[in-house]
């Protein structure tokens, strides 16, 4: 028991735990749509591309995660727009824009006096140093996105299953597509605080992909994804505390462990095509 309560006497661990739990709920829920719409690559692209947003925020002296959110939503819209209007495949659009954006981030960082520890924080996460304002942003974003998904559940479900049919039914297919991209963008930036921009994809895809092995319905899939995400975040954080491992890495590795157990034990077919497949939207 003491093993569990001991770390929690520190305020930074309390904040880290709350932050990690919120992020786990958010990434696992959005992650469900990410794997169903085969958008894993866009999650990764946005995460890496967000580096420029964080660098701009740093240069302007803004809150990094507010700047990062605004920038990354813009990046997501741009990817969607390039894909739609320039008839570039979504993969290509992501490839072009995320590498350009990341290059911009690296360029900006190289001109300014960024401390190496700062950069490490963005790349690998710094859940243990979350401030209370950052925590408010994380909680605010999590609640907002969960409310949006709850209010428009049947529309997003229809869009995710069959965008064409959804359009015939009079749903705004493009609007739903962009809304999903924007939510992925916010999720990625918010989650990067705990696991870093390099490991965000882990939280976005692995819990949902593990849950996918166990469920035949979307509600169960979401529920299990959140459960697996929570286990990853909490167990990962404690492992990080006791073994002195980078917290982002231990959270990602814990979720990978759950995935491994899931594919070995689950009664279902392993559809790796969906998990690793490129977007078809």
């Amino acid at each position: 028991m003491e093993l569990i309560t001991e770390p929690l006497q520190y305020t930074f661990m309390q904040r880290a735990l709350i932050g990690a739990i919120a992020v786990a709920i958010l990434t696992s829920t959005i992650g469900t749509f990410v794997i169903l719409r085969r958008l894993a690559f866009i999650g990764e692209g946005l995460a890496h591309g967000s580096l420029a947003g964080l660098a701009i925020g740093h240069l302007l002296g803004w809150n990094l995660y507010i700047a990062g959110n605004i920038y990354t939503i813009g990046l997501a819209m741009l990817i969607g727009y390039l894909h739609e209007k320039a008839k570039v495949s979504l993969d290509t659009a992501i490839g072009i824009l995320f590498s350009t954006s990341m290059a911009l981030g690296v360029a900006l960082i190289s001109t300014s006096r960024f401390y190496a520890t700062n950069l490490n924080g963005y790349l690998f996460g710094s859940v243990l140093s979350i401030g209370s304002f950052d925590l408010m942003i994380i909680l605010g974003a999590t609640i907002t996105i969960l409310v949006i998904l709850g209010l428009f559940y049947k529309e997003f479900l229809y869009y995710a299953f069959d965008p064409e049919m959804a359009e015939v039914a009079g749903l705004p297919r493009t609007g739903l597509h962009y809304a999903l991209l924007a939510m992925i963008a916010v999720t990625v930036v918010v989650a990067s605080q705990t696991v870093g921009i390099i490991l965000v994809t882990a939280l976005l895809t692995i819990p949902a992909a593990s849950a996918y092995q166990w469920s035949h319905s979307l509600k169960k899939l979401m529920f299990l994804a959140v459960l697996f995400g929570l286990i990853s975040a909490i167990v990962g954080l404690y492992i990080s505390y006791y073994f002195n491992i980078a917290s982002g890495a231990s959270i990602a590795l814990t979720s990978a462990g759950i995935f491994l157990i899931s594919i070995i034990l689950s009664p279902q077919r392993v559809s790796l095509r969906r998990i690793f497949g490129r977007s078809s939207s």
């Binding site: 049947k154 529309e155 479900l157 299953f161 069959d162 959804a166 039914a169 469920s215 319905s217």
Partner: peptide
């Protein structure tokens, strides 16, 4: 052939989608 056959959704839920609009 355009239907996503790996999607975790039941027969009943698919038909209920028809009520979305």
């Amino acid at each position: 052939k355009s239907m996503d056959k790996d999607f975790p959704i039941s027969v009943y839920e698919v038909v209920m989608l028809g009520r979305t609009g």
